[in-house]
Amino acid sequence: MTYRPSFAEIDLNVIRNNYQLSCQQAPASKQLAVIKANAYGHGAVQVAKQLEDIAPAFAVAFIDEALALREAGIRSPILIMEGFFRAQELSLASEKGFWLMLHSPEQIEMLEKTPLPSPLNCWLKVDTGMHRLGILPEHVPAILERLTKRGKLAQSPVLATHMANAEEMNNPLNQRQIDRLRQLGKDTNSPLSQANSAALMQLPASHSNWNRPGIMLYGCSPLVQRSEQIGLQPAMSVYSEIIAIRELKKGDAVGYGGCWQARKPSRIATLAIGYGDGYPRSTDSQCEVFLHGQRATVAGSVSMDMLGVDISHIPEARVGDKVELWGNNIPVTELARRVNTLSYELLTRVNQRLPKHFVD
């Protein structure tokens, strides 16, 4: 039981619906549900259980995240997108049935040298232009031949790449990346994976054997207008309560540093939530919350545990009233734009101190 009146509400049915919408964008493909970073702050175990009967596989960033899912009873295939860091993880991956993304010559060498109880399911990351991780395309055929000869692979690896500019429909790098991976797939007769959320939504040429929807599962695609068109809905709403109300005179300041001053007699509510819970400290008076069917602006600097809100135009507001920080009325994408960041960051910053209430 928790007593503090602040929490994140996660609607698991919304995530399920969003996943099904992602499938409709590419019905000829398989959709691997990306649930790294605790399912983008939404609860990886709960999301995996909600999707396990309809998603053919999940993806996480590293083996610790995959192990937590196995310990919670998730039996589906799990792709580890950063692969492995040390050789001892290979036996563990084989034992637990994890799929590994190989992205470097060092990983290839470790895999070749390490005895395994059974061959691994592997994907091969190909650098087609993002220049972050991946094997250069011209080196891929020789690597596939080496791994096949050594009996390290349970089946033909999926060749995967990551789109660097999929949010920009007309960026010329998009087509170059698509063409490079498709040609490599033809040359090696390999299955492919290319589309992330943005590419899945607006670059059909990137759709392949496996797509990797991530942020769109949680209703916060990087393509705001397109999100509305296909029916995505936000799965997370963050709430708090008014714990105090102050009547201010003109010129009175609010919060650390006195950066906000009342231009007229004002009524300020204090909410029991702050940057220690994941709400961004970099907010200003352009950021808004929602209560009594209206928006209200943030007043003063955000503290670790509290923040102020100008409720001068909402006379009915009282201590104990529920306030939405983001959700159906204040989109997290809107708040992210206000503070010059991404919805990805705000969602994943929601930490363990802020309880999660799951709706199923």
Rank of each mutant, 00 (worst) to 15 (best):
Q225I: 15
G293R: 06
P280D: 09
D277W: 02
A205G: 09
A253K: 05
S206F: 06
G219I: 09
I242L: 00
P204A: 10
Q261M: 11
A269H: 13
D277E: 11
N211W: 04
S208L: 12
R226H: 10
L200Y: 13
I268Q: 00
D252Q: 06
G255M: 01
G258P: 04
P265V: 06
P222Q: 12
I243T: 14
I242Q: 00
L248I: 04
Q194V: 08
Y256C: 04
A244E: 15
A262F: 05
H207K: 05
S266H: 03
V254R: 00
Q194P: 01
L223S: 07
W260L: 07
P280I: 02
T270Y: 03
Y218F: 15
Q233I: 03
H292N: 11
M236I: 15
I242P: 04
Q286M: 04
L232E: 04
N196Q: 06
T270E: 11
Y239H: 15
L248H: 03
M201W: 06
Q286N: 13
T283H: 10
Q194H: 09
G274V: 12
P213I: 11
N209C: 08
I268L: 02
K264S: 12
S197L: 03
G231T: 01
Y256I: 14
N211S: 11
K250D: 05
L248N: 01
E288A: 02
D277C: 02
I245H: 04
L271I: 07
C220F: 10
G258A: 11
L223P: 10
G219V: 08
G274W: 02
N209D: 15
L223T: 13
R263Q: 14
K249Q: 09
S227H: 04
R281N: 10
E288T: 10
G214M: 12
Q286F: 05
L217H: 04
S206V: 05
A199W: 03
V224N: 07
Y239A: 12
M216N: 07
K249L: 03
R267H: 00
N211R: 09
S197D: 04
E288Y: 01
A269V: 11
S282R: 13
Q225G: 13
S193H: 09
P204I: 01
E288I: 03
D252N: 08
L271R: 07
I242C: 00
N211C: 14
C287V: 05
K249E: 05
P280T: 05
I245V: 14
A195V: 08
S206C: 10
E247A: 09
Q261Y: 02
S266W: 00
R267S: 01
Q286S: 13
E241F: 01
L203Y: 03
Y275I: 03
D277H: 11
A205I: 08
K249F: 01
R246C: 00
E241C: 14
W210V: 15
H207I: 05
R212H: 11
Y239M: 12
Y239W: 15
T283F: 00
Y218N: 10
E228Q: 14
K264F: 07
G251M: 00
G276V: 14
G214Q: 13
G293D: 08
R246L: 04
E228S: 13
A199S: 12
G231S: 02
G214L: 10
P204F: 03
P234G: 04
G251V: 02
